[in-house]
Structure formats: C-alpha cells, structure tokens
C-alpha cells in the first residue's frame, strides 16, 4: 500500500538514518536534484550503504540521474546490487528512455545473479514530451509498475508559472492518470511545495485523489500524516465495503445470483473495490 512517498536527499546521513520512521509508505532516496553535482559519487555510495546497513522496513525507491548525464549508469551499477524495490528514472520523455534504463538494469541483474526483472521502475514524467508519451512510457517495459508526475520541472518546460491552484498542471494530471490506468498501473502525484501550508496541501491531495491518483509524494515529513489521511479510506467507505462483502457472502449462502445493496446492484467491480478498501484499511490500521 502506497499512499505517500517521501523524498530524502541522498547525501545526508542524518536524514537517511531516520527516513524509515517518518510515517511515509515508501522512501525515495534521491541521487538527483537534492544532490550537488560535485557530490554525486558520495551520495550513491552513502545510499547504497544506507540500504544495506539501516534495516529499512519500508519500500525503497532510488531516484537516479537522467539518461544523458554522466551519472545514471554509475548510479545503477552502485545501487542495483543492493536490491532497492524500485528505481525512479528522471526526465523520462519517451518509451525508449525507459528501455535504455531497463536494459542497463538487466545487465547488472544478470551480472549480480539477481532474478531478471526483479527491479521495478517508476518513471518520473516531468516534461511536455513525457506527458504526451505517458501511455507509451507506461507500457514500454514490464518493469514499469507506476508513473510519477513531477510538476515543478514540467511547468518550467511549459514556460508557465507553478501555482497553488495548479490549473497549469490539470491537463498533465488527467493525462498521466488516464495513461497509467489504461496500462493497469498505479500513479503518483507531484509534491506540494509549501511546507507550512497544510490546508492547501489537503485540498491539493484531495483533488489529486478525486482525479484517480493512487497517492502523493512529499518533500516534507510534516506533510505525511495529512496525505496519508486523504488517501486512506474513510470510516464510511470501510463500512460500505464491509456491507458489500457481507451482502455477497449472504447471497452466496442463500444461493442467490443477483445481489443488491441499498437499492443498487452489486457487480464485480464494486466487490473488487470493496476488497481493496478493506485490505487498505487493514494495512493502515494503527499506522499514521
């Protein structure tokens, strides 16, 4: 279950130490924008050692430098052998970008005797080209298990201003959700960048959820409880899901074919959704 993904600068030992305890469902250990050009070597080795040495109990995603920079291959060579759950390639514009990264990972997996295809990808789409190619990117490779929208770089590419209302990324958001869902994979929203504006954060996260996003990333640990709450099922949703399951069970026992609840027919997608909701509720219970 992934409601939240929290970014951590890859060259900060202090932040890496406590990354697993700040309430996010996944950790994004960043080798890209949060690391100075002169410290790329430092960060990738520190992140490698953190993954092996710090007993993270969360899903680990490592954000690597873009294809075309002198860093991305070394990033992969250093990180893949310690088996992060996912790699986040950056500035992904085309399906080909994904395949290049995937091929390099395949080489390393083989050299290390790892299971082929065990490393998953969550491409970061943050250019106009990437948005237009979102479905091709989503279906480029079997490693791709989710898409991720980067609003800051995207608005720079669009030559428009990034605003709190976010009208400028509305098209990108709906497009990327559509592509991901069409490909049958998850999709994650861009961080809210005002660290102190919690009301704005909640509105933004609720909007993202309403569009179909699976969850949302963050750059601030203080945002995590708010986002988790937005992307967790409500009491009402959990109760409804339970009612659906109970109803189906009863119908089965009574040998009924067609079932309705509160005057509405219960079909397969409703049941599937109820199962998802209850599973999410089970995983969240007690978390944050």
């Amino acid at each position: 279950m992934r409601r939240t993904m929290l970014f951590f600068p890859g060259n900060s030992p202090n932040m890496l130490l406590n990354a697993g305890y700040l309430g996010s469902d996944s950790l994004i250990l960043d080798l890209e924008d949060a690391v100075a050009i002169t410290e790329k070597d430092s960060a990738r080795i520190l992140v490698r050692n953190a993954i092996t040495g710090l007993e993270y109990e969360k899903e680990i995603i490592v954000r690597i430098n873009p294809v075309g920079t002198p860093f991305w291959e070394k990033d992969l060579e250093t990180i893949i052998p310690v088996k992060p759950h996912m790699i986040m390639p950056t500035k992904v514009g085309t399906a080909e970008d994904v395949r290049i990264v995937s091929a390099k990972i395949a080489e390393i997996e083989e050299a290390c005797g790892m299971e082929a295809g065990s490393t998953k990808l969550i491409p970061l789409i943050e250019t106009a080209l990437g948005i237009e190619n979102a479905y091709q990117i989503a279906t480029a490779d079997s490693r791709v298990c989710a898409l991720f929208l980067g609003g800051e770089d995207l608005t720079a590419d669009l030559r428009c201003k990034r605003t709190k209302e976010g009208k400028e990324i509305f098209y990108a958001r709906t497009r990327i959700v559509m592509a991901a869902r069409a490909a049958g994979i998850d999709v994650y929203d861009t961080p809210w960048t005002d660290v102190e504006d919690f009301d704005g954060l909640v509105k933004d996260a609720e909007f993202a959820k309403s569009l179909g996003f699976t969850g949302k990333s963050s750059i601030s640990p203080r945002h995590i409880p708010y986002i988790n709450k937005v992307f967790s099922p409500t009491e009402e949703e959990i109760q409804y899901a339970q009612d659906v399951i109970d109803c189906i069970e009863r119908a089965k026992a009574e040998g009924k074919g067609v079932v309705s609840l509160r005057g509405k027919m219960i079909d397969a997608p409703i049941v599937a959704r109820a199962v998802q909701t209850l599973e999410a509720a089970r995983q969240i219970k007690g978390g944050k």
Partner: peptide
C-alpha cells in the same frame, strides 16, 4: 520542535 523525528514521537 520542528525536528521530524521529535514530531513523530510526539504524535
């Protein structure tokens, strides 16, 4: 405190 670890403990 604004220390994220301190806030998690407080929560």
């Amino acid at each position: 405190t604004k220390d994220p670890v301190g806030l998690v403990i407080a929560d």
